[in-house]
Computed example of a mutant assay.
Amino acid sequence: MRIGIIGSGNAAQTLGSALVRRGHEVKLGTRSPGKLTHWLEQQNSDDASVGSFRDAAAFGQLVINATAGDGSLEALRAAGSEHLNGKIVLDISLPLDFSTGILTLSVANTDSLGEQIQREFPRAKVVKTLNTVTSAIMVNPLGLADGEHHLFLSGNDAAAKREVQGYLADWFGWKLILDIGDISSARGTEMLLALSSRIYGALGHMNFSFRVVQ
Rank of each mutant, 00 (worst) to 15 (best):
residue 43 Q to I: 11
residue 81 S to C: 10
residue 5 I to H: 08
residue 155 G to H: 01
residue 133 V to P: 03
residue 105 L to M: 11
residue 61 Q to K: 15
residue 200 Y to R: 02
residue 6 I to H: 07
residue 70 D to S: 14
residue 116 Q to F: 03
residue 152 F to T: 04
residue 184 S to Y: 01
residue 158 A to C: 13
residue 133 V to N: 00
residue 70 D to V: 13
residue 143 G to I: 01
residue 107 V to G: 03
residue 56 A to M: 08
residue 162 R to V: 07
residue 99 S to W: 10
residue 163 E to W: 08
residue 66 A to K: 05
residue 70 D to G: 06
residue 114 G to W: 00
residue 87 K to T: 04
residue 104 T to Y: 11
residue 59 F to H: 04
residue 123 R to A: 15
residue 110 T to V: 14
residue 170 D to A: 03
residue 210 F to H: 12
residue 97 D to N: 10
residue 122 P to W: 03
residue 183 I to E: 02
residue 81 S to I: 10
residue 33 P to N: 07
residue 71 G to K: 06
residue 110 T to H: 06
residue 117 I to Q: 03
residue 176 L to R: 12
residue 84 L to M: 02
residue 130 L to D: 02
residue 165 Q to Y: 03
residue 79 A to Y: 00
residue 56 A to L: 11
residue 192 L to F: 08
residue 115 E to D: 15
residue 172 F to V: 08
residue 185 S to F: 03
residue 57 A to P: 03
residue 148 E to F: 09
residue 10 N to S: 15
residue 66 A to P: 13
residue 5 I to A: 02
residue 97 D to H: 05
residue 202 A to I: 09
residue 210 F to N: 04
residue 126 V to D: 01
residue 163 E to G: 04
residue 16 G to Y: 00
residue 49 S to G: 15
residue 6 I to T: 09
residue 40 L to R: 12
residue 31 R to K: 14
residue 24 H to Q: 12
residue 168 L to W: 02
residue 57 A to N: 06
residue 116 Q to P: 15
residue 90 L to R: 04
residue 24 H to D: 10
residue 72 S to W: 01
residue 102 I to S: 05
residue 125 K to S: 01
residue 52 S to W: 12
residue 197 S to I: 13
residue 148 E to S: 05
residue 190 E to S: 06
residue 197 S to R: 11
residue 11 A to N: 05
residue 195 L to K: 15
residue 69 G to I: 05
residue 83 H to L: 02
residue 93 S to H: 05
residue 122 P to R: 06
residue 94 L to T: 14
residue 50 V to S: 04
residue 12 A to Q: 02
residue 160 A to I: 04
residue 73 L to T: 11
residue 170 D to I: 06
residue 198 R to D: 12
residue 106 S to Q: 12
residue 201 G to D: 13
residue 13 Q to Y: 07
residue 4 G to H: 01
residue 151 L to H: 11
residue 30 T to Y: 00
residue 136 A to V: 06
residue 94 L to F: 06
residue 2 R to P: 05
residue 197 S to W: 14
residue 159 A to N: 06
residue 139 V to R: 03
residue 116 Q to S: 10
residue 195 L to Y: 13
residue 214 Q to W: 11
residue 171 W to T: 04
residue 169 A to W: 08
residue 168 L to S: 01
residue 130 L to G: 00
residue 186 A to S: 14
residue 169 A to I: 09
residue 207 N to R: 14
